[in-house]
Simulated scan of single mutants.
Amino acid sequence: MKKIQVLVVDDSAVVRQVLSALLNGAPGIEVLHAVADPLLAMERMRLSWPDVVVLDIEMPRMDGLTFLRKIMADKPVPVVICSSMTADSTQLSVEALSAGAVAVINRPRLNVREYLHGHAEELIAAVRMAAGSTPKAAIAPAAKAARPAKPAPAGGTRKYGPLPPAPEKFTADAILPAAAGAVSVRTEPLVAIGTSTGGTQALEELLAALPAHAPGIVIVQHMPEKFTAAFAARLDSLCAITVKEAESNDQLRPGLALIAPGGKHMLLRRNGNQYYVDVIDGPLVNRHRPSVDVLFRSVAKCAGANALGVIMTGMGDDGAAGMLEMRKAGARTVAQDEKSCVVYGMPMEAVKLGAVDKIVPLGAIDREIMAQRGGA
């Protein structure tokens, strides 16, 4: 069987050495070249095109983001970002995900050798996942008309401490019980979206296509802690709707999308005819926190037929069981089609489970969302 051919691009000799040793030591993976900057990388890529690129962001001569955009425009290739954890690099990494990178792995500036050895399994898994993905060239959002000033965000805190990893694969039962019955109360329509690998780029395209009067939206995007605030801010700058990282007691309303913070679960809660979100600690569910299954179950419990469930590009099965619960509670359910997914994992699992009413391409999901509101 052909090995996964990897190109490592990093200006640190230590990082190049460690990444090469770890990846070459993994079955089925081979490092073709390890180079110090993107200009050298382009020379090597003319000779042999890699299956995956492991890329730093901050480098001399050409930064990683410029390089990523160039190869995505010329000939898309799966890219895993492996970069230092700083405020600037976090913002740049979010931009890289929007430009087509399929995964981000943070690393510290100090003790990097020990850190990479300690996270070798995560790195190798990211490369294997990337090799099975279909990267998409970024689509520049259309220019939009000026919009009125947005209301100030609700109060709350965004300073969440890290949680230890769970040793086993929990279901949503670890966070909240399943719905006891159908929801009979009619409320404003809402949309719940779950996505993972490739989702940053897909969400950007989807949310930028929505008008300001779109239904309220709650979103779980699998993303590292501290990245979601920067990601939400980026989307907010591009979209007619308001997009923000969710905080407990945020009220969902038309024209607002709330993104679950990395490292926290987000649940929907109803009070009368109004919806709010709770942002909580808890174990990993389907090895994720936030988990799509947790969000979808909470939506099934308190919104039922008032909701539309959307499951998009991503690896694994998080969200499939929760979407089935939403469908049984009367919600409409939609899955992104295989052709437009970077990784057709989460939608495929939901389809296999019988949780999906309709399969549509990414470019048609905005119409499904507006149909939930009863018009465009």
Rank of each mutant, 00 (worst) to 15 (best):
L238C: 09
I259W: 08
Q251V: 12
L238Q: 14
D236E: 11
K244C: 03
T242R: 14
L256Q: 09
H265S: 03
L238N: 05
G262F: 02
P261G: 01
N249R: 14
G262H: 05
A240D: 15
N271Q: 14
L268V: 07
L235Y: 04
D236Q: 14
S237Y: 09
L267I: 04
G272V: 02
R269V: 13
L238G: 09
G262P: 07
S237I: 06
E245P: 01
A260Q: 01
C239V: 13
K264P: 08
D250K: 13
L258C: 11
I259T: 01
T242M: 10
P261K: 04
K244S: 11
L268F: 12
T242G: 09
L235H: 03
L268C: 04
A233F: 04
R269N: 11
S248W: 09
K264Q: 14
Q251T: 10
T242Y: 00
L267R: 10
N273G: 10
G255Q: 09
E247C: 12
N273T: 13
E245T: 00
R234K: 10
I241D: 12
A233R: 10
R234W: 05
N249S: 05
P254D: 07
I241C: 14
S248I: 10
S248A: 15
R253L: 04
P254G: 07
A240K: 15
D236S: 13
A246K: 04
I259Q: 00
L238I: 11
I241A: 11
